[in-house]
Amino acid sequence: MTIRALFLAHTAAPSGAELATSRLLGALRAERLAEVAMIYTEDGPMVERTRARGVETHVLHGTFDSRAMTIGSGPLRLLAGAIALLRLGWALGGHPATRRADVLVAESTKALVMGTVAARRARIPLVWQVHDRIAADYFGRLPALVVGLLGRFAAQGFLANSRTTLATLRTGGRPAEVAYPGVELGIAPLRAAQRDPEETVIAVLGRVAPWKGQDVLLRAVAATKVRPRRVLLIGGTFFDEESFGAEVDRLASDLALPVTRTGHVDDPRPYLCDADILVHCSVLPEPFGQVVVEGMHAGCAVIASAPGGPEEIVTTGVDGLLVPGGDEAALTAALDSLIGAPALRTRLAVAGRERAKAFDVAATARSVAAFLGRIVQHRGAAHV
């Protein structure tokens, strides 16, 4: 039996989790592993991107602003946001797409709140696909506790984007599985050989946000023995983080670094293929780190932050380098070792391309479809 799975996202901004979900839906549809549909609670770039994959896509308009309930919001804003989510959840439970679905998949903590109400109204199981570590260092102690308990009691299954994320969840013994965010690999892109030290191009791919550590990278680059020819900061600012983008621009100017900030780009591959080194520099443990895989596939030599998901991708010294997140001195040392050694960069890049093959989205889609099928089957057996 082909299951009907409805995915729910609270935002249509093109951030990492939303892009990963769109790729997954495309693969589920292309491989005919499940009938899939998507509901966003606001309009935005991801709506058309998801439709372009041939996925049935709906926008449930309501009074919820995706910028509400952000980390650090005050209690009144959190309460107002929670009420709006619950109202949208009730409306979602009566939506025709929900009524046709066999399972509802919540793609964020806010989607989990809505999905808790919607799944109960529609009498279908709820699966929480978790893209963030549910931990105090990211959410704050009380919000992490509340979100963890909600997931524990509301979800019938959990899909985690890494073992790192899974370790932070309260599953209560319910089914849980790691489903790495799959990357559309295809044929490895052609690229030029690694450049000489003084011509090196360094790239960072991801949302420009404080915890992503672009400022850490710039200070580390400023201390290198040989400065690179160019530093590419690939990614936009979302969720009220524009002020940090301005701070990064000022820092680059103060340090006299040759920085190019691209803003959000739909396809970062041309930039990655022009880079010699891809640096992942998050200062908090990354839940997974799909940009690490993208950099590997593009043929970059990769430096990534640990601990966190990148430890599940990179074997340091074999297919990349790992450094402690937020440690500027360690990052400078890693950059020095790569900038000054094109042959080392080449060796790591070749091994990295091979390692990236383990994260093909088609494999993730098969794993997710099988897991959702088990949840639906178990729910059906329980109601016989």
Results as ranks from 00 to 15, higher is better:
74 G>T: 10
111 A>P: 02
238 F>C: 03
119 A>Y: 06
338 L>H: 01
343 A>V: 08
342 P>I: 07
360 D>P: 07
291 V>R: 05
39 I>R: 02
99 R>Y: 04
203 A>G: 13
350 V>M: 14
21 T>P: 06
32 R>V: 05
111 A>I: 00
261 R>Q: 11
297 H>C: 04
147 V>P: 03
266 D>I: 04
234 I>P: 00
1 M>S: 12
290 Q>I: 11
364 T>I: 02
378 H>K: 15
357 K>A: 15
368 V>R: 01
341 A>E: 13
68 A>F: 00
184 E>L: 14
155 A>F: 01
146 V>W: 06
62 G>Q: 01
267 D>C: 10
244 F>A: 06
13 A>H: 05
315 T>C: 08
100 R>N: 07
162 S>W: 07
70 T>L: 13
216 V>A: 15
353 R>M: 10
241 E>P: 05
374 R>H: 10
302 V>I: 09
263 G>H: 03
264 H>I: 10
209 A>Y: 08
119 A>I: 02
86 L>V: 15
226 V>C: 09
280 H>V: 06
198 E>N: 12
251 L>T: 06
337 S>F: 07
78 L>F: 05
136 A>H: 10
304 A>R: 10
341 A>I: 00
148 G>L: 03
64 F>W: 05
94 G>T: 07
92 L>Q: 08
157 G>N: 07
112 L>R: 01
323 V>I: 15
233 L>W: 13
40 Y>F: 15
242 E>P: 01
382 A>E: 12
228 P>Y: 14
191 R>P: 02
257 L>H: 06
91 A>T: 11
162 S>C: 02
384 V>C: 07
318 V>T: 14
85 L>I: 01
199 E>C: 09
312 E>G: 11
180 Y>W: 13
160 A>E: 02
376 V>G: 09
348 L>F: 03
10 H>G: 04
149 L>W: 10
290 Q>T: 14
346 T>A: 15
11 T>A: 09
13 A>R: 11
175 P>T: 03
43 D>H: 14
50 T>D: 10
56 E>R: 01
282 S>K: 04
76 L>W: 06
159 L>Q: 15
353 R>Q: 15
163 R>I: 01
